[in-house]
Design a protein around this nucleic acid. Sequence first.
DNA 1: GGTGTTTTGTACCATATGTTACAATTTACG
DNA 2: CGTAAATTGTAACATATGGTACAAAACACC
Lengths: 223, 223
Amino acid sequence: MKFPVLGKSPLFAGLADSEIESLIEGINYRVRFFYAGAMAALSGDEILSVMIVLSGSMRGEMTDLAGRTIKIEDVYPPHALAAAFIYGSGAHYPVNVMANTDSELLIINKDDYLKLMNADSRILNNYLTVVCTKALFLSDRLRFLSFHTIKGKYAHYLSTLPGAAAGRVLIDHTQQELSEFFGVTRPSLARAISEMQQEGLISVTRHEVRLLDLKGLSKLLEV
Amino acid sequence: MKFPVLGKSPLFAGLADSEIESLIEGINYRVRFFYAGAMAALSGDEILSVMIVLSGSMRGEMTDLAGRTIKIEDVYPPHALAAAFIYGSGAHYPVNVMANTDSELLIINKDDYLKLMNADSRILNNYLTVVCTKALFLSDRLRFLSFHTIKGKYAHYLSTLPGAAAGRVLIDHTQQELSEFFGVTRPSLARAISEMQQEGLISVTRHEVRLLDLKGLSKLLEV
DNA sequence: GGTGTTTTGTACCATATGTTACAATTTACG
DNA sequence: CGTAAATTGTAACATATGGTACAAAACACC
């Protein structure tokens, strides 16, 4: 097996190493090496290929108006860069892609990857799963941020947990983790929770939250 | 042609009506009629099929803790319901789906739609385009909302317009439209713009904004 | 059980934004 | 040009959240 890491890639899930190898060998591909700091793609470049990180790690970063860079995310093996965007209409890289450390990328032309999907329905299924799951994740996150207030976010969060309908949910995250997930500061979240208790909406014990006033909680979800 | 509206669907772009018809006739499908107010799917239901709105219109709505409903979006012909989520891992409807008016849905089983994609690469391409474009849109929106301050959002918005690098961009949206896009109130946006002028960051004329201090603007994009 | 560490509660003040209202300006259209 | 409508600028105040700091409580580990 030339690229053992691919066996763990969600894009090749369910395929034996030998199958992956023969599929890959049937199409055009190339492996490129990037020294730490080298750019693999520039923001705005057209996306022409699937790029899978084989070793090292890549970083997506934006350049702002003054030319400074802001890191967006890291991509580690065996994941692909911008996988969910590749076939978008006029797909362009939304960020600069740069090697964190010395890294290798497996590069497959978009059209060749399409051939792979046509050749093996598992590859097609895998890719569809990856991109749809990403869309679901983004959509969830977006709906979440659409609640303006911390109380609204917390109420919505509680409502997504199992047991919410029964009025009793278990939380196994710290306030610190939740506040980061909500994009707010930890003391502000603590204050919001505290006020919601005083208002009789919930009662919080160690790891359990009881939803006392479902009607009142649902008011927080408006707008 | 049994379903003329499909010719306009992004899922069948590039195919002649006759081709669409013969493809559809080659698989299992059904058309279901929904009276106004009827539910086509419940939030949490597993997504088993592609559902394309042929006539009428459907509404996605959430149910909150107190059982009240919040409208999320409308879907009109010839668009599909939750198209970008269908093949997600453990895909479930994120919302209740209900008919606004008397409506017809073309329902194609997920697996049959997969067969279509395998049978015709244009169908595959179309679907990939739809779902990737959706992911791109969601990702953009999310990045946008990640700027906490109005000034940050406005600076980022300006930076995405053509001409930003040259320091001069044209705006053809009203403050009202922008404020809705940003998720803030109109007076707050006006105040932010006004302050940014006083701070010497930008100068605004009728439809033109000049970026005077790129370094200062980029500071607003931090965090 | 004791002790150091993590987590949570709370307070104070600064700041950003919302809310409401109205005036000023620009645009659309007769 | 003139008038109504739309858009923008601005103000005063209320509120939500951030930032910082520290104490109380819970937890982990010996």
